[in-house]
């Protein structure tokens, strides 16, 4: 099912938690609502589910206006951060409970529940109580329970936040697999950019209730339209320098970087760590090596530029040591210029 948001706004008293969203989520996509905590992403999800009423604007599922429809009539499945499995019911009962409410016959609903349990790989745990399951298993059961009614949309609210790092990796691949097998339109809330980048078809990046940018993860990374987008995505984070452009040079505290730009004004230069080359003859600027860290297969380099530390990756051929000055050249890809309002130039 396609989800259409038309000028959706949520106000809590005077505070705009979600500000004028117009968006379309295509059928069968896995969409991430991404942003720092308090940006309104959970509020937006809860408006789509119907738990929180919309202040202004309309929500459509396909062509159907669901703005004032009660949650139980929206044909959605919801998974909460802490799973909210009924502690007194077995895994089988938990998964089949939505069908029990619909008065589906016991044999039929249990058969369907077993099928769902197989999909999420908990079919060996059917008689266990939630307290006897690991976090990841509870998560799987919660997803099965959300899917058993064959919802048109699956909504997941920070589903991986309660898991440890290794389980989180495993479960995000599982969510991706389950989504691809069922082809259900899925909306996923997270504050973890790596999580969002790795599983989603599309990312909706939000800040303070305002939509920053919507696109495929790689497009957001390669072509951020706002400074916030460039800084929020990427690990290690992007290097940002606020300064002035003057006739062929970007200046920060009287230190210069050679740069190709058209107007003399105040700008922010944002450079991805991988967008810096080493070039002793034809360099754009110089900096001093402050530290070198070997992390797994990569070596991270900290460069002292004036009073700033810039991050980049070392190459195997780099034969400079800590304290040495080196010449650096900016690549075309991964270098962005933003104006003082944070918009891309």
């Amino acid at each position: 099912m396609q989800v259409n948001l038309k000028n959706v706004t949520k106000k809590f008293n005077d505070f705009k938690a979600v500000n004028n969203f117009t968006l379309t989520f295509e059928e069968g996509e896995l969409i991430c609502l991404l942003g720092p905590s308090g940006c309104g992403k959970s509020t937006l999800l809860n408006m789509i589910s119907g738990i929180i009423p919309v202040t202004e604007g309309k929500i459509f599922f396909d062509d159907r206006d669901v703005t004032n429809l009660a949650p139980q009539h929206r044909e959605i499945g919801l998974v909460f951060q802490n799973y909210a499995l009924y502690p007194h019911m077995s895994v089988l009962e938990n998964i089949s409970f939505p069908l029990e409410i619909k008065k589906v016959e016991k044999k039929e609903r249990e058969a369907l529940a077993v099928e769902m349990a197989k999909l999420v790989k908990v079919d060996t745990l059917l008689d266990r109580k939630p307290a006897e399951l690991s976090g990841g298993q509870q998560q799987r059961v919660a997803i099965a329970r959300a899917l058993i009614k064959k919802p048109k949309i699956l909504l997941l609210d920070e589903p991986l936040s309660n898991l440890d790092a290794r389980l989180r990796l495993e479960m995000r691949e599982e969510i991706r697999r389950i989504q691809q097998e069922t082809k259900v339109t899925t909306i996923f809330v997270t504050h973890d950019q790596e999580e969002a980048m790795s599983i989603s078809d599309k990312i909706v990046l939000m800040k303070d209730g305002v939509l920053m940018q919507v696109d495929k993860p790689q497009v957001l990374y390669d072509n951020p339209l706002k400074e916030f987008v460039s800084t929020f995505l990427g690990n290690p984070p992007i290097n940002t320098i606020k300064g002035n452009y003057n006739n062929g040079f970007f200046e920060y505290n009287n230190q210069k970087i050679k740069l190709n730009y058209h107007t003399n004004e105040e700008i922010t230069l944002a450079i991805r760590p991988e967008a810096i080359d080493f070039d002793e003859e034809n360099y754009d600027f110089k900096a001093v090596i402050k530290e070198r860290f070997k992390i797994g297969k990569e070596e991270l380099l900290m460069l002292q530029f004036n009073d700033l530390l810039l991050r980049t990756y070392a190459t195997d051929e780099l034969n400079k040591n800590v304290g040495d000055e080196i010449g650096l050249k900016l690549k075309n890809k991964g270098v962005f210029i933003f104006d003082n309002k944070g918009d891309r130039k």
């Binding site: 589910s49 139980q72 009539h73 919801l78 909460f80 909210a84 409970f97 939505p98 409410i101 619909k102």
Partner: peptide, 12 residues
């Protein structure tokens, strides 16, 4: 939250 979940599934 248990009530919220059950109500979402349409429980009386």
């Amino acid at each position: 939250l248990y009530y919220t979940v059950a109500k979402l599934d349409g429980a009386s």
